[in-house]
Lab assay of single mutants.
Amino acid sequence: GVTLFVALYDYEARTEDDLSFHKGEKFQILNSSEGDWWEARSLTTGETGYIPSNYVAPVDS
Protein backbone atom coordinates (compact mmCIF):
# COMPACT_ATOMS: atom_id res chain seq x y z
CA GLY A 1 0.00 0.00 0.00
CA VAL A 2 0.88 3.65 -0.28
CA THR A 3 2.15 5.34 2.87
CA LEU A 4 0.47 8.68 3.41
CA PHE A 5 2.06 11.51 5.35
CA VAL A 6 0.38 14.21 7.40
CA ALA A 7 1.62 17.76 7.96
CA LEU A 8 2.68 18.51 11.54
CA TYR A 9 2.91 22.27 10.97
CA ASP A 10 1.80 24.97 8.57
CA TYR A 11 4.28 25.72 5.80
CA GLU A 12 4.37 28.65 3.39
CA ALA A 13 6.08 28.02 0.07
CA ARG A 14 9.30 29.96 -0.49
CA THR A 15 9.73 29.11 -4.18
CA GLU A 16 7.45 28.17 -7.08
CA ASP A 17 8.50 24.54 -6.67
CA ASP A 18 7.45 24.36 -3.03
CA LEU A 19 3.99 23.40 -1.85
CA SER A 20 2.23 25.52 0.76
CA PHE A 21 0.20 23.47 3.22
CA HIS A 22 -1.60 23.54 6.54
CA LYS A 23 -1.21 21.37 9.61
CA GLY A 24 -3.25 18.19 9.19
CA GLU A 25 -3.05 18.14 5.40
CA LYS A 26 -2.28 14.71 3.96
CA PHE A 27 0.19 13.88 1.21
CA GLN A 28 1.16 11.08 -1.10
CA ILE A 29 4.95 11.09 -1.46
CA LEU A 30 6.04 10.83 -5.09
CA ASN A 31 9.81 11.03 -4.62
CA SER A 32 11.69 10.94 -1.32
CA SER A 33 15.18 10.35 -2.77
CA GLU A 34 16.11 14.04 -2.90
CA GLY A 35 17.10 14.24 0.75
CA ASP A 36 15.31 16.75 2.97
CA TRP A 37 12.87 17.90 0.28
CA TRP A 38 10.29 15.44 -0.96
CA GLU A 39 8.10 15.67 -4.03
CA ALA A 40 4.55 15.19 -2.82
CA ARG A 41 0.96 15.47 -3.94
CA SER A 42 -1.54 17.05 -1.57
CA LEU A 43 -4.67 14.94 -1.14
CA THR A 44 -6.47 18.15 -0.15
CA THR A 45 -5.69 20.30 -3.19
CA GLY A 46 -4.36 17.76 -5.68
CA GLU A 47 -1.34 19.99 -6.25
CA THR A 48 2.18 18.63 -6.58
CA GLY A 49 5.36 20.22 -5.26
CA TYR A 50 8.25 19.93 -2.85
CA ILE A 51 7.72 19.80 0.91
CA PRO A 52 10.24 19.79 3.78
CA SER A 53 10.37 16.22 5.06
CA ASN A 54 10.80 17.31 8.68
CA TYR A 55 7.34 18.95 8.55
CA VAL A 56 5.50 15.67 7.92
CA ALA A 57 5.08 12.27 9.58
CA PRO A 58 3.62 8.95 8.41
CA VAL A 59 -0.11 8.53 8.95
CA ASP A 60 -0.84 5.62 11.28
CA SER A 61 -2.84 3.15 9.22
Score class of each variant (00 low, 15 high):
Gly1Ile: 15
Gly1Asp: 01
Gly1Val: 12
Val2Asn: 15
Val2Asp: 11
Val2His: 10
Val2Gln: 03
Thr3Asn: 15
Leu4Asp: 15
Leu4Tyr: 14
Leu4Trp: 11
Phe5Met: 09
Phe5Gln: 07
Phe5Val: 05
Val6Met: 13
Val6Gly: 04
Val6Ile: 08
Val6Tyr: 08
Ala7Met: 00
Ala7Asn: 00
Leu8Ser: 11
Leu8His: 09
Tyr9Phe: 14
Tyr9Gln: 11
Tyr9Trp: 11
Tyr9Cys: 06
Tyr9Val: 08
Asp10Phe: 02
Tyr11Arg: 08
Glu12His: 15
Glu12Tyr: 11
Ala13Ile: 01
Ala13Thr: 08
Arg14Lys: 13
Arg14Trp: 04
Glu16Leu: 12
Asp17Pro: 10
Asp17Gln: 09
Asp18Ile: 10
Asp18Leu: 12
Leu19Phe: 14
Leu19Trp: 05
Ser20Asp: 10
Ser20Met: 03
Phe21Lys: 00
Phe21His: 00
His22Gln: 12
His22Val: 12
His22Phe: 15
His22Leu: 12
Lys23Asn: 04
Gly24Phe: 04
Gly24Thr: 03
Glu25Lys: 01
Lys26Thr: 05
Lys26Ala: 06
Phe27Ile: 05
Phe27Leu: 11
Gln28Ser: 15
Gln28Asp: 12
Ile29Cys: 10
Ile29Ala: 06
Ile29Gly: 02
Leu30Met: 12
Leu30Ser: 05
Leu30Gly: 06
Leu30Asp: 05
Asn31Cys: 05
Asn31Thr: 08
Asn31Tyr: 02
Asn31Phe: 02
Ser32Gln: 10
Ser32Met: 09
Ser33Leu: 12
Ser33His: 13
Ser33Lys: 07
Glu34Gln: 11
Glu34Lys: 08
Glu34Met: 09
Gly35Arg: 11
Asp36Glu: 09
Asp36Leu: 06
Trp37Tyr: 07
Trp38Ile: 11
Trp38Leu: 13
Trp38Asp: 02
Trp38Met: 13
Glu39Phe: 03
Ala40His: 00
Ala40Tyr: 01
Ala40Pro: 01
Arg41Asn: 05
Arg41Trp: 04
Ser42His: 15
Ser42Trp: 00
Ser42Phe: 02
Leu43Tyr: 08
Leu43Thr: 14
Leu43Ala: 13
Leu43Phe: 09
Leu43Pro: 04
Thr44Trp: 04
Thr44Phe: 05
Thr44Ile: 12
Thr44Met: 08
Thr45Ser: 13
Thr45Gln: 06
Thr45Leu: 03
Thr45Pro: 00
Gly46His: 11
Glu47Phe: 08
Thr48Trp: 06
Gly49Met: 01
Tyr50Leu: 13
Ile51Arg: 00
Ile51Ser: 00
Pro52Lys: 14
Pro52Glu: 03
Pro52Phe: 12
Pro52Gly: 06
Pro52Ala: 05
Pro52Asn: 10
Asn54Pro: 03
Asn54Asp: 06
Asn54Trp: 06
Tyr55His: 09
Tyr55Trp: 10
Tyr55Lys: 08
Val56Asp: 01
Val56Cys: 05
Val56Pro: 00
Val56Ile: 06
Ala57Glu: 15
Pro58Ala: 10
Pro58Asn: 03
Pro58Tyr: 03
Asp60Phe: 06
Asp60Glu: 14
Asp60Val: 07
Ser61Met: 14
Ser61Val: 02
Ser61Leu: 06
